[in-house]
Each structure stands twice: as C-alpha cells, then as structure tokens.
Design a protein around this nucleic acid. Sequence first.
DNA 1: CTGTTCCGTTACCGTCTTGTCACCGGCTCG
DNA 2: CGAGCCGGTGACAAGACGGTAACGGAACAG
Lengths: 223, 223
Amino acid sequence: MKILVVDDDPDLLALVAFALTNAGYAVVRAADAGPAIAAFDRELPNLVLLDINLPSGSGFDVCRNIRDRSQVPVMMLTARGEEEDLVHALELGADDYLTKPFSPRTLLARVKALLRRAGIESADTLTAGQVSLDLEAQTLAFADGALLRLTRLETRLLQILIAQAGHVVTTERLLAHVWGHRGSGDRQLLKQLVHRLRQKLERASPGNDPLQTESGVGYRLKA
Amino acid sequence: MKILVVDDDPDLLALVAFALTNAGYAVVRAADAGPAIAAFDRELPNLVLLDINLPSGSGFDVCRNIRDRSQVPVMMLTARGEEEDLVHALELGADDYLTKPFSPRTLLARVKALLRRAGIESADTLTAGQVSLDLEAQTLAFADGALLRLTRLETRLLQILIAQAGHVVTTERLLAHVWGHRGSGDRQLLKQLVHRLRQKLERASPGNDPLQTESGVGYRLKA
DNA sequence: CTGTTCCGTTACCGTCTTGTCACCGGCTCG
DNA sequence: CGAGCCGGTGACAAGACGGTAACGGAACAG
C-alpha cells in the first residue's frame, strides 16, 4: 500500500512519513506542487495526503490535477481556521480532510478509514478483464490459469494500463510512469517495451492482444 | 501463543475461540470488562481481541486499562457503522480493528499480521511444508527427521521466508530483515547467504531445493 | 597458539533485461 | 508524388542480475 504525502514542512513530512511507515505503508514524499504531480505519475500511490498550502501554487491545483486522471482517494491537510478552503477542496474532489495539528494515531485511523471506504484492501494485485497483475511477484495471471513472469518495466507498464483499463493512457504518462522522466522524446523505449510485452502475451494466450494502439495518443488495455 | 478474546456474545466467542484454537493458539475467554481485566492480569496473553460493546462499561475502558500496563497488541471488534468509535479506539492505543461479521479466515489473517507487526511471531518455532525452524536453537528440522544446524544469518533468512512461505519476499525486505538495512546495495551478501544455505540444504536433503529464485524480485520458499 | 566457523569481500561466468540503431510500411499533408 | 511522422519489427551490445568459487579477517573453542 503506497501513500503519497505532500507538504512543504519538512518536520511534518518526516513525522507523517514515520507514522505511516511504521504502520506498514510505503511512503512517497513531495514538498511542492510540481514534484507532487511528478511523483504521482511515477508512483501511482493508493492514497494521497495533500497539504493545502504549498510554496508554489496551492494544493487545490494538485488535487484537481490528480482528480483529472485518477480516482485515488485524497485527504487534505489543513491548518485550523481554513474551513472555507476546506469546502473548496471537497468540491474539487478531495475525499476527506484532517486539521493540523493531529496525532499520528488520528492520522492512521483516518487513513485506514479512507482506504476502507475506497474499497482498497490490497495494493498487491490489480485486475482487469481476463488478466490479474501481481505487483510484488511481477507476474501476470490469466483467467485460464496461465502465469506469466514479467520484467520490472513490463510490470510498471501493465500497472498503469490495468489501473486505467478501458481508457487510453497517453504516451507522456506512460513514459513518466515507467521511466520517470517527462517530456524527453524517448518513444522508442516505449515501442520496444510494448513490442516485447506483446510477444510475451502472444505466446501465453495466442490471438488475443489486449494492448490496443491508439495512434497518435497512446495505448489502451481492453477492459 | 496466548490470545485473550473478550466478547459478550457466546456464539461469537465460541466461533472465534474455535478458529483460533484450530490454528494452534491458546485461547482465554472473557465476556465482560471486569473479567477481561482480571483474565489479562492472570494470563498475560500475547494478543487481545476486544469487542467495543460490552454489557458493563465499554471496550474503551478495557483497552485503556490494558494499554496502561502493557504493550500487548489489541485488536478491536466492531459492528458495522461504528466508525467513530473506531477512531476513538485507535486513539486509545488499539492496533487494529475488525468489522463484524468476519470470516474465520479473515480473523486468522489479521491476527497473524498483527502478531507479525508486533514482532511477537518469534514463537520459537516456525513451520512450512517439510521444514520446521527452531529460532532459539538455530536448527532446521526436516519432515524425515533430519536436523540441520544453522548460522545466525541463515536463521534470520529462513525466519522471514518461512513466515511468508509460498509468497515472494523482496530482496529489499530480506536485506532489511537479515542485516537491518545497511544501505541498499549489498545484494552480494544475500547471494552468498542463499548460496551457502542452499549447499547446506542440498547436503541434508538432496535434489529438493525449497528456495526458489524470483528473478528481479527476490526469493520464495516452496509452500 | 592453532584450527574451525562464520561471513564480508572480490572476481568471474552465463543469462536476462533493456537501451540503441536500423529498417519497414502506413498515413498525412503540402 | 515525396517528405515526414508514426508505429512495428529485428538485431546488437552494454549492463544488471544470479550463481559460484576463492580469499581473508574476526570470533571462538580447544
């Protein structure tokens, strides 16, 4: 279970990260809006803890940005007396909020509650259609029982495609998620990765390519 | 491993006790707050399963009372729709919760997870498949009666592998568990440890390597 | 002191993964 | 029609990774 924590206060960041790590969550940190978006695309966390006040821009932008592309639960962190901001955040799609200061126990309780509400029990497996991806074992299980071993990059590629099953995923987002760099024109890498993955899938279940090319846009996984 | 179960519903108590006993735990029962405290002091269980709603007083009091004098892991049992109580309980120091109704399998999984998290899994012996590990004696017993002396590191390695038998354990987790997270680059240590352990196992029971390599991920113990 | 055990370290090898280049065919647009 | 972009495919090589062997220091027993 991976949680992205966005806050510009290093002390708070450290405290929250410590509490969450202790509770068994994997924590990804970001201190500002830009890095937060980048980290989100790269890591695809299961939950986002988002401070409203950020150095550049505001948490609102980050929240809207994330909500545009994912249903991931978002919990806003607010200082006391920012109730109006709070309403705004909830309108933007935030799922819950927490008022500073808060105790680690409160944080954990709310995080757990939110995860449960979102129906996320296990981050280890993603399922879409006939395939089920085990992130930890790096394997892909087919409905007919076949099991396919994947490489690290193949796993990351399928992770985002399955998470967005049925919807097109932009070349940009794929590059950002799999390799971590944005913008640079490394499309050849993606071509090769898709090619190799298709070969593997073809061998495992012939005549049934679930990877659909959306020319000029990106790729899509058949739902 | 002793578990104290506190619930005023005799049926649920019987069910839970049956499931836990079957799984090899010793079970102590209590049906109300007073007896629960008494039983706790008398038996000093390794874990407490605690219903929030009790006839006299509430589970909160019992939880606080126990937490005042012990670090023992406490799991709360709640009925659906008691989320607020839940937060309260977690703030009081409960470590986990379970919403009724739950299946015995769920219960066991959560109990095991909680014990593991609390580091109490050191129940002296761990068993998986044909092998049984004695943590204190640092020995590994095979089903056919063979006994193998292990080194400290080998014991720690097998400890986590047996605890997760059948599931992949990441290289990272293995390094963290065996060596205590010294940097992250020390994979050669793990290679050597696995190699040496395999040699030992091969000598003890030839042609039957229970350590499976999951390339690019980690290792797995055959279940 | 001497031998043994444990284990960290370096080195080498074969295999798998992945980045890179080169080429092909289809499509679009001037 | 031809240039240019895009996606697909094959081939190659660097590098990562796992397995194995060997060396040597540290701790310890006799």
